[in-house]
Simulated scan of single mutants.
Amino acid sequence: MKKAIRGARIFDGETILDGRALVFSTAGIEAIVSNRHIPGECETIAADGKLIAPGLVDLQVNGGGGLLFNNAPTVDGLRTICAAQVRSGVTALLPTLITDGPDVVRTAIEAGKAAFSEGVPGYLGLHLEGPHLSLARKGTHDPALIRPMTKEDCDYLVDNAGLFGIGLLTVAPENVTRQQVARLKQAGYIVSLGHTDTSAAVAREYRLAGASTATHLFNAMSPLGHREPGVVGAVLADGGFSAGLIADGFHVDPVAMGIALRAKAGPGKIFLVSDAMSVTGTDLQSFELNGRTIYRKDGRLTLADGTLAGADTDLLSCVRNVRDMAGLSLEEALRMASLYPARAVGALSKGRLTPGADADFILLDNNLALSASFIAGENVLASD
């Protein structure tokens, strides 16, 4: 059955439209029409004073609802994480597995296959962040589990490409070869550089081999220097890279955010990620990762030594932050959390509200608080 939402402003992924109605069904977005041209067969929903925007797309979500994906690499764990994230407006996400042992990686991929085949609402695929990273830029990743990518590792990933949805892989040149990157890219993976201390020149070589994104810009990567531009410099200068940004106010200073946004060469874009952990949507004050305790305090998640360990935020909060901290327009802040990440991983039916796109969208009030989340034309927030 077709439905139409009227009375709201509509952000279609590019511009804000007034005096229009959004026509949709479970099959997707049908049209944006003037109120007087709403088809007669539509069920009409009033949303006066609200803003309709594309559902948010989060490419780095470690957990939610009290579960960390590493600790619950099951289809039920994925279902819980996706349901928790929809409460912050995320209608498509890549649950993220942090560096772990080979058995956990394979168990997670099997869970992803099940979630993909079952059509778990919000599930888009998996982000495997490690274990093939740099020890020098390990961040919170367990150094005992970081290792080079073997032929067996690469073969397994290639054999399972596409079976669990979109696959995003964070790797470091220190532990993955250019030939492996090219092979993974050819198999259909999105290859991202992260947790690496490599040079700008090597980062560019890996981009030419097939890497197309960078994981949490500025964090756990070689910095921009005036003689060695590092991975940060390579990502900003090379339009072939897109990059995730954690805009929680702790991982990246607002001044650095603004500089990066002004400096980024296109067509690649900087997009927002939450890097959310299991505490999202809960009152939990600590949790375990690879046998180590992560503490929650004053908006930060850290190991005992103060190392940041993911983020105590959600993607909608990051939208507000880049608008308020970096001075972006509301439209650009929303694009950074919907259109840009969708494009970065080739999910072209997401992040926009044009005919043929998925009917994944959110309703926001004037304070950008969430009123409703629709996935495939159904209000999943109301049914949660």
Rank of each mutant, 00 (worst) to 15 (best):
K2W: 14
A4P: 07
G7P: 10
A8S: 14
R9Y: 00
D12T: 09
G13W: 08
R20A: 07
V23R: 02
V23K: 06
A27I: 00
G28L: 03
I38V: 15
I38C: 09
I45C: 04
D48Y: 00
P54Q: 11
D58F: 09
Q60L: 13
V61I: 15
L68N: 12
F69N: 01
D76M: 06
D76L: 08
L78M: 09
L78F: 01
A83E: 14
Q85Y: 11
T96K: 04
T96A: 02
P102L: 06
P102K: 03
V104G: 00
V105C: 08
V105E: 12
I109M: 15
G119Q: 10
P121D: 06
L124G: 09
G125T: 09
G125V: 09
G130C: 02
A136R: 14
K138S: 05
P143D: 08
I146H: 01
P148G: 02
M149Q: 02
M149A: 15
M149C: 07
E152L: 06
E152V: 11
D153Q: 05
D159W: 12
N160K: 13
A161D: 06
E174V: 02
E174T: 03
V176F: 00
R178T: 11
R178L: 13
Q180N: 01
Q180H: 09
L184N: 03
Q186T: 14
G188F: 03
G188C: 05
V191W: 08
V191E: 08
G194M: 04
D197G: 14
S199H: 00
V202P: 00
S212R: 15
T213Y: 04
A214S: 15
L217N: 08
A220Y: 01
S222D: 01
H226V: 11
V231S: 05
V231F: 05
V232D: 08
V235Y: 11
V235I: 14
L236S: 12
A237T: 09
G239Q: 12
F241Q: 11
G244C: 12
I259H: 12
R262H: 07
R262Q: 13
K264E: 05
G268E: 07
V273D: 05
V273M: 02
S274Q: 05
S274G: 05
D275P: 10
T280E: 13
D283I: 02
Q285D: 15
S286H: 13
F287D: 07
L289D: 08
R292Y: 04
R296M: 11
G299Q: 06
L301F: 12
L301I: 05
L303Q: 14
G306F: 06
G306S: 10
T307G: 12
T307S: 11
L308Y: 12
A309R: 10
G310D: 08
D312H: 14
S317W: 00
C318M: 04
N321P: 03
V322F: 07
V322D: 12
R323S: 08
L328N: 08
L328Y: 13
S329Y: 14
M336K: 09
Y340L: 10
P341I: 07
P355C: 07
L364N: 01
D365E: 07
N366Q: 15
L370S: 03
A372P: 06
S373N: 04
I375M: 11
E378F: 03
V380W: 10
A382N: 02
